[in-house]
Design a protein around this nucleic acid. Structure first.
Length: 292
DNA sequence: AATAAACACAACCGCGTCACG
DNA sequence: CCGTGACGCGGTTGTGTTTAT
């Protein structure tokens, strides 16, 4: 039986006497891998006892998910993977699990680590804010950025990943959106510390009316029955961003990681790009056949 | 060669959410 | 409706390795 959580009095799950912590040994890995292969994933809480491991369930789950799973691809992250991570992060923010889900064989932990140790520094060295994917506001480039990036009234000082801007209509794996123009708590609170963090976490199954249409979302904020459309939409954003990146790389002689999809740039103003209703229309036209 | 600093990444922690009784 | 167990997520920390001095 679990005691109620009291702030400041939380006991770590691995603090029990006899529970081992720290790096896993090859022997432990073998025991865990064999057990999961035989019994399947899940029931992590009781797995250590059943498998004969002196570890907590959380630790076992993490070890399996991030290291032992056969599908995990380890080692050097290729340039195309890096590029995809950059584009997905621009679209999704720090939703590592969601990003990892679109990069075969890579785990959220690996991508998060790679981002924190490599990519964020790389962007900074290029004069780009890794959190917003916009140019860092130095005295030198501040005025230039004003010309290029027009923000909507709702974005204020917290630039949003593309998918978040579009979230009330089309976002996948995003928290419940009971009202238009309110994508999630982080944005509602307008807190710089929370932007880019935890956006994929808070959610529950809710039914809302969006554009006059009743929409049910699952625990991840995904519209039920719209999975393929949403996934395709995200793919299209990624692909279009890739195209635009290439254009801008050629034009500017460097990579720019904060930009709208190419076909949208061609047909719209930047103001539209940051306008929620514009994204709603975009998604509707993209998945129109599914919604009619 | 010794040591400190920087780096990379595995592992842990806290918390939110869901399912279920 | 509430409490609990379980799970999954993102943030943070710990530790081993590499590089610089």
């Amino acid at each position: 039986m679990r005691s109620p959580r009291v702030k400041g009095q939380i006991t770590p799950c691995c603090s029990k006497v006899g529970i081992k912590r720290g790096p896993w040994t090859p022997e432990e890995d073998e025991v865990l891998a064999n057990f999961v292969k035989k019994e399947g994933e899940g029931r992590w809480r009781t797995l250590p006892k059943r498998a004969g491991l002196q570890r907590c369930g959380k630790s076992c789950r993490l070890r399996w998910m991030n290291y032992l799973r056969p599908s995990v691809k380890r080692g050097h992250i290729a340039p195309d993977e890096e590029d995809l991570i950059l584009r997905l992060h621009r679209l999704l923010g720090n939703r590592w699990s969601l990003i990892a889900g679109r990069i075969p064989g890579r785990t959220d932990n690996e991508i998060k680590n790679y981002w924190n140790t490599h990519l964020s520094k790389k962007l900074i060295s290029q004069g780009i804010d890794p959190r917003t994917h916009k140019p860092l506001l130095t005295l030198e480039n501040h005025s230039k950025s004003q010309d290029v990036y027009h923000e909507s009234n709702t974005s204020t000082s917290n630039p949003q990943p593309v998918a978040e801007i579009a979230s009330t209509t089309c976002a996948r794996e995003i928290g419940s959106c009971s009202q238009q123009n309110q994508t999630n708590d982080a944005i509602q609170n307008n807190s710089p510390d929370t932007v880019g963090n935890n956006w994929g976490r808070s959610s529950s199954r809710v039914v809302t009316f969006e554009n006059g249409i009743e929409v049910e979302r699952d625990r991840h904020g995904k519209m039920i029955g719209e999975e393929e459309t949403l996934s395709s939409f995200l793919d299209s954003l990624i692909n279009d961003n890739e195209a635009l990146d290439n254009q801008q790389t050629e034009a500017a002689g460097r990579h720019v990681f904060a930009a709208p999809p190419a076909h949208l740039v061609a047909s719209s103003s930047h103001q539209q790009f940051f306008d929620l209703s514009f994204w709603e229309a975009e998604f509707q036209s993209f998945g129109g056949d599914h919604q009619q």
